[in-house]
Every structure is written in structure tokens, then in C-alpha cells.
């Protein structure tokens, strides 16, 4: 039984053993050889990201509504402390008066400051680039909220009930966009926001593997480019914007 939280592939292979067996093998009472029929884990070599075309994103809230419905994020009727996994931000160029509206969520930075500051290692980056909070070890200190330049994280102030099974959330922990990790681990290749943007919104968002040159997102980025918000910080976020 490993309480080791370092992502170490060979050790994990050793512990999980042969794929395909169903039950664990009990060596002696209380000691197991873990064998699982679990999925293989994060896709090797992948880096998941989003591309958002602000030229077509307009006065619409479909992604926000869909995200919060998918993950059971509800309002407590206290807007100043309600959790926000994704929000619409309106920006106006003061010189020209030209304005834009774009969704902003956790940018899934390659060099995430939220991970640097976390005293417990609860804020971490998965091998496939998704930045998450391990709520089993989060102590609710909110350092990561201070460190995040995108104000992507929210703290849960109140006792919650009726969480959705795939998105555990609870009082005293910090949370943010998970890039719909429950879908990705199931093999799906879209997120709730991207799906809603295509069915109800303006089709402004693409989800995909930034490391796969043949993916839709990489082809679009290669052809039209895409900017990072606050690129000056050098965090190399996995969320890119066009038309800013």
C-alpha cells in the first residue's frame, strides 16, 4: 500500500500489477497485492488545453452555465463568495472603444504559481498538464488563491450537500476548473464548456491535445496562432486565446 504521492511510473506499475485482473490478491490478512482493472491513467505525452476564439465569442454565458451544472457548482446567494470555476470577462480597449467578451478559467499553467506556493503539495499538476487540487490534502490556507494571477480559484466557505459524484467538493478546500478531468479519464475528448459553446453558444472553443500536432487545436494554433493572457509572466498556460 503506497502513500507515496510522487508520480513514479515504474513504482505505480509495480503496485498496480497486471491489468485485467479484477480482485486484489490478499497475501496475508490486511496485506494486499493491488491488482486492478483500472484504466491506464493519464494519456502519455498529452497536454490538454483549450483554444478560445474571442472573435466569435459574444454576449453569451453558455459555457459558464454548463460548467457549473456539470460540476454541481451552485450559488449560495452570496455572490461575493460564491465559487466560480469559469467566468465571462469583458474587456474594452480604452483607445478605440473596441470591446471583447471571453471566458476565463484556470489556465492550466505549465509553471503554475499555485503549485509553487502550496505548503502541502495539494495543488499539483498532472502528467497530462491538468492542474488540480487534491482535496484530501488541501488545508484551506488559500495561498494558491493569492498566487494565481488569473484569480481562477475559489474557496468553499460553507457546508455543502448534494455534490455530484464525479466532482467532490467540500467546505474548507479550494477548487477550480478541472478541465473536466472526469470526462478525460473516461476517454471523452471534450469538456462541458466546449460542448455547450458548440450546441448553445457561438462555437468559440476547442479542446484538445496541444502536444499532438495533428489535433484540431494544434492545427488551429499553427495556422492562426493564439495568445496567452499575461504571457509576460512566462507561465505557459494551456488555455490560449485568439483575437485579443
Amino acid at each position: 500500500m503506497s502513500h507515496d504521492s510522487t508520480p513514479d511510473l515504474s513504482r505505480r506499475r509495480f503496485i498496480t500489477g497486471a491489468v485485467g485482473a479484477v480482485a486484489s490478491l490478499t497475501v496475508a490478512p490486511g496485506i494486499f497485492l493491488m491488482q486492478t482493472n483500472a484504466q491506464a491513467g493519464t494519456k502519455p505525452g498529452a497536454r490538454w488545453g483549450l483554444l478560445i476564439n474571442t472573435n466569435v465569442c459574444g454576449d453569451c454565458n453558455a459555457c459558464v452555465t454548463a460548467c457549473h451544472k456539470e460540476n454541481g457548482v451552485g450559488s449560495m446567494n452570496r455572490p461575493t463568495t460564491d465559487a466560480q470555476w469559469i467566468r465571462k470577462v469583458n474587456i474594452t480597449d480604452r483607445a478605440t472603444g473596441h470591446s471583447r467578451s471571453l471566458p476565463v478559467m484556470c489556465q492550466h499553467c505549465e509553471h503554475p504559481p499555485c503549485v509553487d506556493v502550496c505548503p502541502t503539495g495539494a495543488s499539483f499538476r498532472r502528467a497530462d498538464g491538468i492542474v488540480l487540487v487534491n482535496k484530501h490534502t488541501c488545508i484551506g490556507c488559500r495561498y494558491c488563491m493569492m498566487a494565481c494571477p488569473y484569480k481562477a480559484r475559489s474557496f468553499i466557505h460553507e457546508h455543502l450537500t448534494d455534490q455530484v459524484p464525479h466532482a467532490p467538493r467540500g467546505k474548507g478546500t479550494v477548487e477550480s476548473c478541472t478541465l473536466c478531468v472526469h470526462r478525460i479519464d473516461k476517454g471523452e475528448r471534450t469538456t462541458a464548456c466546449v460542448e455547450a459553446c458548440h450546441t448553445e453558444g457561438n462555437g468559440a472553443m476547442v479542446f484538445g491535445d496541444l502536444n499532438d500536432p495533428n489535433s484540431e487545436i494544434s492545427r488551429r494554433l499553427a495556422e492562426y496562432g493564439g495568445a496567452a493572457i499575461r504571457a509576460d509572466l512566462g507561465l505557459n498556460p494551456g488555455v490560449r486565446y485568439q483575437g485579443l
Binding site: R12, T16, T36, G41, D128, H136, I184
Partner: peptide, 16 residues
């Protein structure tokens, strides 16, 4: 306890 670390950190989800 074993399962939670595998699922959260590595995306290895074992429904059993």
C-alpha cells in the same frame, strides 16, 4: 485510501 491517490494523482480510476 490507495485508490484515492491513484485516481487523483495519476488518473488511474478503478471502479471496483
Amino acid at each position: 485510501s490507495h485508490e484515492k491517490d491513484q485516481a487523483v494523482l495519476f488518473g488511474v480510476r478503478n471502479p471496483n
